[in-house]
C-alpha cells in the first residue's frame, strides 16, 4: 500500500506533465472529432432555418393535395345526391367516460368506434367526430345508435336510441349528440344539419 501511495504521489507530482500530455492528446483527438463530425460543426442557424422553410413549403403543398383529394373522394364516393354522414358530439363533464358507439342503418351495422382518452377529451372540448359517411336513397331510413361508457358516478352507462331519417335529395348530415347526466339517464339527440 505504501508503494501504491508513493506511486500516486509521484503521479500527482507529475500531474502538470501528465496534463500537458493529455492536452496534446486532446488536441489530436479534437482534430479527429472535427473530421468525424464535420457536418455537425458546420450546422448554422441559417441552415436550420432554411431547411425549416423548405419543410413548411412542402407541408403547404401536401395540404393542398389533401384538400383536393378530400374533394375528389367526396365527389367520387359520396355524391351530394345520396350522401349521408353521421357525426358524434358529446355534452358531458370530464369525469364522464365514453367507451364506444355503435350505429346501425336500416338494421345493418355501419359504424363502430372505441374511444381513446384523447378522442374523448377532444369531444368534451367541442370537437365533433364524423363516424360514418355513406350513400342512401331518398326516402325513410332507420338509424339505431348505441352508446356505452361510465357515468360521472362510476356506474355503467348504456344508451340506445332510434331515429327515422327522411332522406331528401342532397346531402344529409346528422349530428348524434349524447348529453350525459351524472345519474346515468343520458339523452341522445338527433339533429339534422
Amino acid at each position: 500500500m505504501l508503494l501504491l501511495g508513493g506511486r500516486v504521489a509521484n503521479l500527482i507530482q507529475q500531474n502538470s506533465v501528465f496534463c500537458k500530455v493529455i492536452k496534446s492528446l486532446a488536441v489530436v483527438f479534437a482534430g479527429t472529432f472535427l473530421a468525424v463530425s464535420v457536418e455537425s460543426s458546420q450546422i448554422s442557424k441559417e441552415q436550420i432555418r432554411g431547411l425549416d422553410e423548405q419543410v413548411q413549403d412542402i407541408k403547404s403543398d401536401v395540404l393542398e393535395i389533401s384538400t383536393d383529394l378530400n374533394q375528389l373522394e367526396e365527389k367520387l364516393l359520396y355524391p351530394s345526391g345520396t350522401q349521408v354522414a353521421f357525426f358524434i358530439s358529446l355534452v358531458a363533464d370530464e369525469d364522464f367516460q365514453l367507451d364506444a358507439v355503435e350505429i346501425e342503418l336500416n338494421g345493418k351495422p355501419v359504424a363502430h368506434h372505441i374511444y381513446s382518452f384523447k378522442e374523448q377529451n377532444a369531444l368534451i372540448n367541442g370537437g365533433v367526430q364524423r363516424v360514418y359517411t355513406g350513400n342512401a336513397r331518398t326516402g325513410d331510413h332507420q338509424i339505431k345508435v348505441g352508446f356505452r361508457g361510465k357515468t360521472e358516478l362510476g356506474s355503467e352507462f348504456n344508451k340506445v336510441a332510434d331515429y327515422t331519417l327522411s332522406k331528401s335529395v342532397g346531402p344529409d348530415f346528422i349530428e348524434i349528440r349524447l348529453v350525459s347526466s351524472s345519474i346515468g339517464s343520458g339523452d341522445v339527440e338527433f339533429i339534422e344539419r
Partner: peptide, 20 residues
C-alpha cells in the same frame, strides 16, 4: 352553438394535436 359539423370535425382533430 356549433352549426357546421365539418368545422367541428376539424376541432376534433385539432384537440388531439392532429393538426395536419
Amino acid at each position: 352553438a356549433l352549426r357546421d359539423m365539418f368545422y367541428g370535425e376539424a376541432l376534433f382533430y385539432a384537440n388531439q394535436g392532429e393538426f395536419f
